[in-house]
Amino acid sequence: MDPTSSSSLRWNILRQALLRRSDSQSQAETKRISRKATQGFNLFPSQVVDSSPQSDHSREACVCYTIPTTGSPKLYLTKRVDNCSDLNDFEISNRYNIDNTGLVCQWPSEEVLAFFCKSQPDRFRGKRVIELGSGYGLAGLVIAAATEASEVVISDGNPQVVNYIKRNIESNSMAFGGTSVKAMELHWNQHEHSELTNTFDIIVASDCTFFKEFHKHLARTIKMLLKAKEPSEALFFSPKRGDSLDKFLKEIKDIGLHYVLTENYDAQVWKRHETLVKGDEAWPNYDKNHCYPLLIQITNHI
């Protein structure tokens, strides 16, 4: 195998994560091939406010996000910062048939989802909302803090991630006003959640369509969660990533749901995208197909 090929370099990223070591050459190779962004779309001012040196939390930091809206409210998210995985991460992934991408970083599509939602408070006011595959929960927390939704459920299938969500909800409880906020472990391949059937006005999710083996379960979950007899919608933000998004949208259509795909949905996000396409050191390997999230609005009715 060519050591400079994309596949070889991606295997090297995994090797570094497992061995917890890297050198200057491997760091340069990782930067060249990885789609991970240092600052993403840079839509929320943020800064690390605590990085604990204690052995129990040496992998974590607390990051303060300022919501760009009236009063500039702040949210504090505890997350991993060491860019390493351990065997326990993979053991849990295998046990629950899930991925561990929610632990890796705050993904750019989640940032875009959060920014879009805070810009449309009327869309969420008084609504029951659930976020799927939330990772550390930025979008769900922004909705809870900035839109006056009646309830926000922040869910993920990875129990490690859900523990972070619970901690982040607790850290920001004073920011939610009258909005009820809770974390939930929700697996898309388990459909016995009768208490959740047809209960949500809005579903939100970001970058949840990458793994094709989860498409059918995800489509079924959307249909189960959305209110059937009242106006309801799912708002997904996902890059095309080859044919992955197209295959997911086929599952949406096959299950009897409808969707509208929008490329330019926010002037500030689009302007940032155009800047990144031209070249930006903050995201050196930016590629529209793999990095720019499209907006997919999914409904029960046309």
Rank of each mutant, 00 (worst) to 15 (best):
D280P: 03
Y259V: 02
E263S: 09
D280E: 04
Y292G: 00
E263Y: 05
Y292M: 00
H273W: 06
P293S: 04
E263L: 03
L295M: 08
T275V: 13
D287C: 14
N285Y: 12
P293V: 04
T275G: 13
N285P: 13
G279D: 02
T299S: 08
W283G: 09
H290M: 12
G279S: 03
D254A: 02
D266V: 09
H273V: 05
E274D: 08
A267Y: 10
I296K: 05
N285M: 12
H258W: 10
D280M: 04
D287V: 14
D280T: 07
C291V: 11
N289E: 10
E263M: 06
Q297Y: 08
A282T: 15
E263R: 05
L294Y: 14
L261E: 04
K288G: 07
L257T: 01
P284Y: 10
P293E: 01
W270F: 10
T275W: 08
E274M: 10
D254K: 02
E281I: 14
D287S: 15
K253M: 12
Y286V: 07
H273L: 04
P284H: 09
N289Q: 11
E263G: 12
W270A: 12
I255M: 12
G279R: 01
V269C: 02
K271H: 12
D280C: 06
P284R: 09
L276W: 01
T275H: 12
